[in-house]
Amino acid sequence: MAVSYITAAATQRLQVVADGMQGKTFAASTGTASAPSLVIGTSAFVNTQGTASVTTGTTGVLAIIPLPIAGISVSSRTLSLVSSSQSATATSSGTAANAAVITNGGTIYVGGLTAGTASTDVILGSAAISSGQTVTVSSATLTHPT
């Protein structure tokens, strides 16, 4: 599944490319940061960017893991969402397959992520998840193509 971004992020991303082609200098974003969360879901979880009000009751959602702002970093074409393992308690049972990053308001900002134990965007301790179990993410990255 291809990673998808909310329209505002995609537009800004393209604006940075346009500015760079014109020789402009890149500048950091402004404003107050608020912590996003990582949603772990089954294949039934529709992880399309722009979907609003994702909660633990949303179809296919297994767990919602808060992401500390300090753990999010960008280096060499890779956005790392966690600098150390992050965990939350599963609210549903199933096999993890999809993931998404949501804003503190519950809107999917980055969708189309995959989740599993290897060769996925989000690396979990176990893909088989039971309600009440601790779900641990050891790695979550987005890599920009060359």
Rank of each mutant, 00 (worst) to 15 (best):
A2N: 15
A2W: 10
Y5N: 06
Y5E: 09
I6W: 01
I6T: 02
T7Y: 12
A9N: 12
A9H: 11
A10E: 15
Q12E: 15
R13S: 14
R13I: 13
Q15I: 06
V16C: 07
V16T: 12
V16Q: 09
D19H: 04
D19N: 15
D19F: 05
D19W: 01
G20W: 03
M21S: 04
K24V: 03
T25R: 11
A27M: 11
A28E: 12
S29N: 13
S29Q: 14
S29K: 13
G31T: 12
G31F: 12
G31L: 10
T32C: 04
A33P: 12
A33M: 10
A33I: 03
S34P: 00
A35R: 08
S37Q: 07
G41F: 03
A44P: 05
F45W: 09
N47F: 05
Q49N: 14
Q49M: 08
Q49H: 13
G50S: 09
S53N: 15
V54I: 15
V54N: 05
V54G: 05
T55V: 11
T56V: 14
T59A: 15
T59S: 14
G60P: 07
V61A: 07
L62M: 10
L62R: 01
I65H: 02
I69K: 08
G71E: 15
I72L: 03
S73W: 00
S76G: 13
R77L: 05
T78M: 03
L79R: 04
L79P: 00
L79D: 02
S80L: 00
V82T: 08
V82F: 01
S84D: 06
S84N: 10
S85W: 00
A88Q: 07
A90R: 03
A90K: 06
T91Q: 09
S92C: 11
S92Y: 02
S92T: 14
T95M: 07
T95W: 02
A96T: 05
A96D: 03
N98E: 12
A99L: 05
A99F: 08
A99W: 01
A100F: 04
V101N: 01
V101P: 01
I102G: 01
T103L: 04
N104M: 02
V110M: 12
V110G: 00
V110Y: 05
T114E: 07
T114P: 08
A115T: 04
T117D: 01
A118H: 02
S119R: 06
V122F: 01
V122H: 00
I123C: 02
L124V: 04
L124I: 08
S126I: 08
A128E: 09
A128T: 15
A128L: 11
I129G: 00
S130M: 06
S131E: 12
S131V: 14
T134A: 15
T134K: 10
V135F: 05
T136W: 03
V137T: 02
S139C: 02
S139V: 05
T141P: 00
T141G: 00
T141N: 12
L142T: 04
L142Y: 06
L142M: 09
T143K: 07
T143L: 01
T143M: 01
P145V: 10
P145A: 12
